[in-house]
Design a protein around this nucleic acid. Sequence first.
DNA 1: TTAAATGTATTACAGATGTAATCTATAGGT
DNA 2: ACCTATAGATTACATCTGTAATACATTTAA
Lengths: 126, 126
Amino acid sequence: MIEISNAELSVMQVLWQRQPLSANEVVAALGNDKDWHEKTVKTLLNRLVSKGALGFDKDGRAYLYYPLIAEQDYQLEQSRSFVERIFAGRVAPLVAGFARQNKLNADDVQQLKQLIADWEQEQHHD
Amino acid sequence: MIEISNAELSVMQVLWQRQPLSANEVVAALGNDKDWHEKTVKTLLNRLVSKGALGFDKDGRAYLYYPLIAEQDYQLEQSRSFVERIFAGRVAPLVAGFARQNKLNADDVQQLKQLIADWEQEQHHD
DNA sequence: TTAAATGTATTACAGATGTAATCTATAGGT
DNA sequence: ACCTATAGATTACATCTGTAATACATTTAA
């Protein structure tokens, strides 16, 4: 399993949004949120390539980077391991925490209801 | 915010289960799951005390350790920051991932339905 | 054609973390 | 009253991470 650090994740998220991007484009995209030196971003790109999380094509002397792992796969694996570690594998208590803190909005609830409906539908299928 | 590392978390979880415990009792409790040297566990206890995550009372030359932060508070904060980082703050997509992977069981769904019912109830009382 | 600019690669360095070993003080046995 | 076993404190050390600076190569402007 490829380990992606917090800072590296921000870089991945830029490239999951739009790809491929040159290093400078990544720097620019991060500029809004992060106050990182250009050199820092280049280091992160480099480490992500070493780890096998990013690939690149050459465009003259510059590289165009793109993700080698899908955001959804990453999200699934991270969710699984987080819920395992913190909630002994059960997701409901996590949602309960959000509910208790009024962190659920109508959209969330709507989506959860739909998920439940789908799940129950699935149970009936033979 | 106190940062608790992965290894340290396992120690906290033992003490959230039962408290207070001597270092040796913690070592014993961890013995089932982890293959850690006694010295390693002592180091983790020490770091957790330094970080303010554990306190202790003296019992002769030994210490009896107990958590200074509540498991529920820790879970809430970790959930919040995880969902923020990975899912832009919305919890429903996380649950959707579990659903897609058939990681929801009837209990989970039952609890989610209850949460939703409570939430909707709450919306009504002005 | 040569020098400057710019892109990537390499090196840097402090703090956190995993994983202990060693040091020091003292409770308890003889 | 001592000695020894043991508990906690301190030190160790490699790797990962955040955060760059410097080195090196090569495109391109003059």
